[in-house]
Design a protein around this nucleic acid. Sequence first.
RNA 1: GUGGCCAUAGUGAAACGGUUAUCACGCGAGUUUGUGGAACUCGCAGUACGGGUUCAACUCCCGUUGGCCACCCCA
Length: 477
Amino acid sequence: MPTKKIIKKKKEEKKPKKSTPTKIVKKENPQKSEQPSGEQRNAKGVRIPALLRGMKDILPKDEGVWKKMYHTAENISEAYGFGRIQTPVLEEASLFIRSVGRGTDVVDKEMYVFEDRDLAKICLRPEATASVARAYIVHGMVSLPQPVKMWYFGSMFRHDRPQAGRYREFHQFGAESIGDRDPVNDAELIVTAFNFLKELGISPVLHLNSIGTADDRAKYLVELSGYLRTKRSYLCEECKKRLLKNPLRVLDCKNEQCQSTIEESPQIVDSLSESSRNFFMKVIEYLDDLSVPYVLRHTLVRGLDYYTDTVFEFYEEETGEGSAQSALGGGGRYDGLVEELGGRPTPGCGFALGLERVAYAIKRNLDKEVKTDVKAKNNQVYFAQLGEQARRRALYLIEDLRHAGTVTYHNLSKTSLKNQLELANKYECPYTLILGQKEVQDGTIIIRDMESGIQEIVDQKKLKSILDKKIQSLTNA
RNA sequence: GUGGCCAUAGUGAAACGGUUAUCACGCGAGUUUGUGGAACUCGCAGUACGGGUUCAACUCCCGUUGGCCACCCCA
């Protein structure tokens, strides 16, 4: 009722403004413009809090997907012998500047950096590999059996321009294997990620390449830019800029004009040292043994500085690499990282998958095969009650059911049975328990099958066992 | 960070330079308080924000904010 009055007032206020000469309106303006623009207010003029740009609430309705991703990640990681590590969201900014690298967009343009109260530079982690490497050093994991295998699942932050499947806070599932330079580790990591995706009903396509050691890359860079410079006139405008800034990126250009030039360009594989080439061959062999399909893509270069040798990315089968957000994740080897961060020279490799994109892919698949989305609501029960006495008794019985692990819905504040049955229906509960005056007196309760409408009066003491049986038979069917 | 498209109740849509912004879903309250998935009645909630043009702006123009798309980059 009060809102009505307010609305009327608001409208009344508006009218005179419209009819008054502009001069008066202008006088009122400065007062209004003191408020920040772009904000929303309700009818009472109370500011409605907004979501920060690029941030997203994950709502109860999405929980199914997230729960599934978490459980799958946990099961698979543990099956492959990884232990979960949880590192802080906040880290020293220098950790990432040293590892990911100055000059990368992630560090230069996208990192959330703040001054702490003691003026130290801290940041919201943009990725987790550096944190895991830091933990490896700080906790003396050198003295554990090598490699040390760890997985993580959590939020990362990058101040990028938001788009579908790209948020400023996003979640990654990843795993690292630190302390052993053997191609089996690379292969194992890849299968882990691959199986995770497959388990979730996604058909992943693996793109694979090797970028060798830092020396190999330096050599290749000279060769590549030399080649590109001779073809400079054939390149698009963008690529001419890339040629100066980051020649490797030219290889990624989607411009048709550049494609033919790129195809004939020197390939990084040819610049690899003997050991890197052998290493890469081994990785490929192991993947064959594990029957993991892959596509060798010599143009694949990753954006973070710490990668060496093996690099890979996952795409969803049908989307391919066509659109910008189709990459589900990637990873690679980083043999110099631990040393770069002040630890002993220690090899390592890992992967990270973008869970928002994985969730996206899962949902797309569900839409396609409509029926896959059969939700298990079989284990939930609705409790309806009638009358004050019944309500009190209900409180106790519901408590009991919940202790026994039965998901019990209720709206004890409702008084009409009709109302409650309607809600039971909306919650999609297969059974409703009905407790009225009469049942309280007799110590019984009604179990109503919501689909058939068949009701059964049972002793309250036997409720749990009877209900369990019914639920059992539902889940089995 | 660059460029483009967009912005109407919680959701999805409609409307017009001019009466009180319409519809569906949703949510709430009822249709003689012991029976839902149907119907009916009533109610809730909106032109993102700020400015300009105009007698008159949800509608046209500018700015801001946000979303989407492409680039950049990446997950």
